[in-house]
Design a binder for these strands. Structure first.
Lengths: 122, 122
DNA sequence: TCCGTTAGTTACGTTGAGGTAATTGGTTAC
DNA sequence: GTAACCAATTACCTCAACGTAACTAACGGA
């Protein structure tokens, strides 16, 4: 019994997992999953928290995540509309590595900026 | 003494860490760092292993990583040219989360494909 | 009656990511 | 001499990502 999946390989250009990687290795996905890790969140709240995202892109991002089974969409029969998004169990397995990326960016940006200056001054 | 850096926040559109996140939350970066995690690698070998990447994009990716201090470039005074790339200590701190993303894509693509079919059939 | 509210869609335009192909440079092999 | 080798650059083109703005539906409130 093999424990890994040797049939799927992101390094192969044509492997379906490559496209999946492209979707999860993405700033909006990382940020969205990081925020949803705090619990079920309304569309409008997500839009506010994800600084600079447009409604169009947020909708597209959430649709893709929903389609892949990473997020569930809860629609309330209210007016004005109220829709909440929540990580699925599968989606939660992405929370740790994606949140780690966000943390990394924040924790190491100072060092990165120094490195960049040194490189550009070379 | 604060342990975190409250001054940097990827969720703020204008924070420099946002751009840094955009660079690391990227399929080519994830794949490149994953491969470099196995040790110092020649340009040509990287190009072969990163299926489908063009020389131009690989060069750009490596330059950006080098500039940010995640990768070091070793040039040998030989002909034909020989250049090797290696993760720095800082770059290695990204290996775990980025490799995790690649693994995730491979390990969950089957489930994702099923979810997608169900969604599209809805 | 008209406005505000929220999630979402559509049309449109701009920017950037990324691929292809041609070219460089200096050796070694033929 | 000329071809091959390898890393890298450049010009050129295409397509996807993304933002903006206008618009919709359906109800409550002034």
């Amino acid at each position: 019994m093999s424990q890994t999946m040797p049939d799927w390989n992101v390094l192969m250009a044509t492997c379906p997992s490559r496209k999946s990687l492209a979707r999860i290795a993405n700033k909006w996905t990382a940020m969205t999953v990081s925020v949803l890790g705090n619990g079920r969140t309304r569309f409008g709240d997500l839009k506010t928290q994800l600084g600079g995202i447009s409604g169009k892109v947020l909708t597209e991002t959430l649709r893709d995540l929903e389609r892949d089974g990473l997020v569930t969409r809860h629609v309330y029969a209210e007016v004005p509309p109220r829709v909440e998004y929540e990580l699925t169990e599968l989606g939660f397995t992405l929370y740790e590595p994606l949140f780690a990326l966000c943390r990394w960016a924040e924790e190491h940006i100072a060092e990165v900026l120094v490195n960049r200056e040194a490189y550009d001054a070379r």
